[in-house]
Write a protein that binds this DNA or RNA. Structure first.
Lengths: 158, 158
DNA sequence: GATGAAAGGCAGTGAAA
DNA sequence: TTTCACTGCCTTTCATC
C-alpha cells in the first residue's frame, strides 16, 4: 500500500485514535468491524507511513498554573538562518512556548505561549524576547480560547 | 493531593506521556524509579485532576494530502455571541481547520488550517469564509513551518 | 491483506507495610 | 502512599486462507 492511499478503515482508525490514543486494540478492532490482528497491522502501517507521527498526552496548561495564553508576533532582522536558527532554538526552549509558527508576511514568527498571568506575559516579552537585538518588533495578542480539532479527512474541495 | 500540587514524579510522567502516550505502564514505572502500581495511580490521578486531558494520536496533515498550512485572521461584525457561536461551529466543522484561536485585538479569530495547495486555500477563503456576511475582514498568512513543544513545567519567572 | 488460535506479557486488583 | 503478588485479559505472533 502506498503512501497516501487511505481506505475507510484507515480513516476510521485516525478518527478513533485522535479521540483516544489508548483505545485498546481489541476495542478498536470491534469498532472497525475487523479482527484485532488486522487493526494492529493497520495502525502499524499508518505509523510506518508517517501518517500517524506519534501518540501524545494532552496537558491542560491552565491546570499547570498557566491559565493565560497569547500569541507573540515577532519581526526578526536580518532574516537569515544564522540569526533565525538560534532564535528558533531559544523559543522552543522556553517553558512558556506551546507552538512556534514560522510564517510569511510582515511578521516572521508567531509564538503561542501559556503564562501564569499578565505580569508573567509582560516580563516574558520584555525580559526574554525584547532583550534580543534580532527581534526588531513584537506584537502581543491575547487569546480568549483555543479549540483544537481532530484531522478529519484528506483534502477535497468541490 | 490538591489540584496544582505536582511533584517531580508527576512532572516526569507528563514529560514521558507527552513524548509517548502509549508507553507501557511497566516501562513508565521503570523510568520513574517507582512500582508499576504507583505509576498507574499517579497517571490516573493526573487524569482525574484534569491535568492530563486525554491521549491523542498525532496525524501528519501533509501526508494526508494537505501540505500547505495557513493562518486566517477574521474580523467579525457584530461581535455578539449570536453571530460568533454559529461561526465557531462552522469553522470547527471545516475539515481544513486544525485550531481555532478566539483572540483580543483588531482581529477576532485566527484559524489554523491545512490545505492541499494554494488554489485550495484561495477557494477556502473565497467560497467558505468570505461568503459569510458576518466576516467583514480576512487576512491570510502562509505558514512555512509549525513546531509543537511538550508542556514542560508550571509557571515561574525569576 | 485478513483471519483465528496460541502464548507471552501487561494491567489492574487487593492486602500488607 | 507505596509495594508486592496474583489473576485475568489483552496484545502480539504466526500459520493459514
Amino acid at each position: 500500500m502506498h503512501n497516501a492511499e487511505l481506505d475507510s478503515i484507515d480513516l476510521a482508525i485516525l478518527a478513533e485514535l485522535q479521540k483516544d490514543a489508548r483505545l485498546p486494540n481489541k476495542d478498536l478492532a470491534e469498532r472497525l468491524g475487523v479482527a484485532p490482528s488486522t487493526a494492529l497491522e493497520r495502525v502499524r502501517s499508518l505509523r510506518r507511513r508517517g501518517i500517524i507521527t506519534g501518540f501524545r498526552a494532552a496537558v491542560d496548561t491552565a491546570r499547570l498554573g498557566r491559565p493565560l495564553q497569547a500569541l507573540l508576533a515577532l519581526r526578526v532582522r536580518p532574516h537569515t538562518s544564522r540569526i533565525v536558527d538560534p532564535l528558533r532554538t531559544f523559543v522552543l526552549g522556553l517553558p512558556e512556548t506551546i507552538t512556534l509558527f514560522h510564517v510569511a508576511g510582515t511578521e516572521d514568527f508567531l509564538v503561542h505561549v501559556a503564562v501564569a498571568d499578565a505580569d508573567h506575559l509582560h516580563r516574558l516579552a520584555l525580559e526574554r524576547f525584547l532583550i534580543r537585538t534580532e527581534i526588531v518588533h513584537l506584537h502581543t495578542t491575547l487569546i480568549f480560547k483555543t479549540e483544537h480539532q481532530p484531522v478529519q479527512r484528506p483534502a477535497e474541495m468541490g
